[in-house]
Nucleic acid binder design. Structure first.
Lengths: 153, 153
DNA sequence: ATCAATTTCACCCGAAAGTATGAATGTAAC
DNA sequence: GTTACATTCATACTTTCGGGTGAAATTGAT
């Protein structure tokens, strides 16, 4: 079942191809066996596969994604308010947020590990998750982004 | 979310393998029908016109553009005032402040070097100076301290 | 119960950051 | 002119960070 779901597109293409081959065979019988002109057959093939090509191209070409940045101004009256919506949009976990907070305070991974009573490797894993979800490459960048979208003061 | 992160490469390998299998299957089909010259001819026609169809579709259809709106949060807490007194107390130079500002934006040393048209080593030297004068050990800590004492927004 | 996500941890490796030291400029002050 | 400091750059070395992978335990929801 999972296999079917996962290969939905491939299966669809496979079925389409099979149907096409059937049509081909049918055309062959109709035009060759009854000795009508070969050229009509070839023409039909050409037309059919031109259509297939067009269909394939339309189906398979990815639509170009144009990202339009919509600026959202947030008024902060000095006090920090946690942006719940932004947090959910990132898909970050509670633990990752904890790590992020300590990160923003300038703590090293080792210090964060000690503070949360877990191993250094665990913190590294959390960091990777944070960077991926915030779409950044470095911890300083992560802190900047997190501050901008209202995850940390 | 984490699943994708963890198996990014594996998924790519999977796709590559799938493509390879497809190619193999295609070759098989090609050689099975090899001994029927008419069918080879028909196949060539089919292939040719499929290509034509694809070409036509790509050439003639206007590129479909999918617009994705991305919200960019901007805090309008604009009441940042540079703390001149704190700045002088640190004994930092103008150049070091420049570096600090870029550092706070999450830039890497190399990126800062490129932005200021100096070498990476120079930036490292400046960083050392900044850390010494702010009495910190890491760049994230430096950013936190600088923000706290009012050197950067 | 089982399935997905979370949290935890480990290992390897390469890249980036940071330390230490020395040195060549340029510039402003004394 | 020399003293002091800012700016620039280099080399060598250590530490930290981050990517990629695999895996076990736990939790939460259906």
């Amino acid at each position: 079942m999972k296999f079917i779901l996962r290969h939905k597109l491939s299966i669809l293409y496979g079925i389409a191809l099979a149907v096409l081959l059937l049509v081909l065979k049918w055309l062959e019988i109709k035009f060759i066996i009854y000795d009508h002109s070969l050229e009509v057959y070839i023409g039909a093939i050409a037309l059919l596969f031109t259509g297939l090509g067009i269909w394939l191209a339309i189906k398979l070409t990815k639509p170009q994604v144009q990202v339009v940045e919509k600026e959202v101004y947030i008024h902060t009256n000095g006090d920090f308010v946690f942006n719940e919506k932004a947090f959910e949009k990132t898909g970050m976990s509670k633990r990752e947020l904890e790590v992020l907070e300590l990160m923003a305070k300038g703590r090293s991974n080792q210090e964060i590990a000690d503070a949360l009573f877990v191993s250094l490797n665990t913190i590294k894993t959390h960091c990777s998750g944070i960077f991926f979800k915030l779409e950044v490459k470095r911890r300083t960048e992560a802190v900047e982004t997190a501050r901008r979208i209202g995850l940390i003061p």
